[in-house]
Design a protein around this nucleic acid. Structure first.
Lengths: 191, 191
DNA sequence: CCAGTTTTGGAATAACCGTTCCACAAACAT
DNA sequence: ATGTTTGTGGAACGGTTATTCCAAAACTGG
């Protein structure tokens, strides 16, 4: 073996994730990542290979620690889960201090940025959207077993798009973002 | 007076607009803007003051020449206008070579980028979303006079969000983007 | 305790960023 | 034709970018 790493990798990635989330990939400078993580350049490059490597780790961390915990309850056939999900997101978007209100979604932000020119990033975002859609579909099926397949699919597509739209505008227009989720809640509850 | 300008301002802005649209504000370098417009730095800075000044001109041009012509037909009480709008957007998103398919919406891309930290840009995007929502509302009222106010508002909000979501994912996931518009068409046509 | 291995601190790199400046070219007013 | 004003070409600016390199530090297996 050799010298042992003095920092906690997951914690460093979490700090870097906040920077990427707030500023986007291109505007997140290495000095800013150093400051946030408390690491020196050499440690970052040694551990992650490149700024891009750290970003990839941040995205994985984002999916595992932020996205999936939020979607997890939808996997179970609980009728109220979809409402809880939408209400939770709405509350997060409305709470002024919250990270998600100030910065939206790391991956949906990336979808409109230069980093999305990268094929691997595009695939990650596409897979994320698919995962979001499946989770919402599960939630809707559990809440509205009365709907037929076509109606379920339509409501799922609508609801997922409403969530995507809320994320896309979160940083810029809180009112629209929250309104988007209210509409989703309305549609899901509708007789 | 003095020496006359040798280039067409509107044409230069159009060229710059394409660069900002494709790469986003921060990733659009001044050399790239020089190459696209055919101007030298000095002419750009003389005419627009800064990279940011050129961006603002590009945004105005985007609204006047791209967004508003597309929304204009919705201002008149034509029942088919909303369907034409959604179908036109769908077609543009699906056509592989189209600029909008490759780059989405200049302003919605900006909403998730670092430039959105600027208050003036946020206001522009908020106003744009409002304009989009009003236009879609007009189109829906004309197409579905049977709906009451609450139903009209809900359908408008849903439809606008579906368009925003389509734009947000256009660069990354054409399938989802087109599906989002199909869902909008479906909802608008629904009995 | 020493040899081997890995991490860390810090300086150095070259390329690029947006912006400024100045001399020269070109047009209009007189 | 001359003086004045404005646009253009091109070099130069300081600052920042991501990345690399190397020597010193710290740990482990023998």
């Amino acid at each position: 073996m050799g010298r042992t790493q003095t920092f906690d990798t997951a914690e460093a990635v979490r700090s870097a994730r906040a920077v990427f989330w707030k500023h986007g990939y291109e505007a997140a400078s290495v000095p800013a990542l150093e400051a946030a993580t408390g690491l020196r350049r050499s440690s970052i490059y040694h551990a992650f290979g490149s700024k891009r490597g750290l970003f990839d780790a941040a995205v994985d961390s984002y999916l595992d620690e932020i996205v999936r915990p939020r979607l997890a309850p939808l996997a179970e056939p609980a009728p109220g889960a979809i409402l809880d999900y939408l209400r939770g997101l709405r509350e997060a978007l409305e709470r002024a201090g919250s990270f998600i209100a100030a910065n939206g979604c790391l991956l949906i932000n990336a979808a409109g940025a230069a980093i999305a020119d990268d094929e691997a990033v595009r695939e990650t975002i596409t897979a994320y959207r698919a995962e979001l859609g499946r989770a919402i579909g599960n939630g809707i099926r559990a809440h509205r077993p009365d709907l037929d397949d076509a109606e379920t699919d339509r409501l799922t597509a609508t609801c997922t798009a409403l969530v995507v739209a809320a994320y896309a505008l979160a940083r810029v227009d809180t009112v629209s973002a929250v309104h988007s989720l209210d509409t989703a809640l309305d549609l899901v509850r509708r007789p």
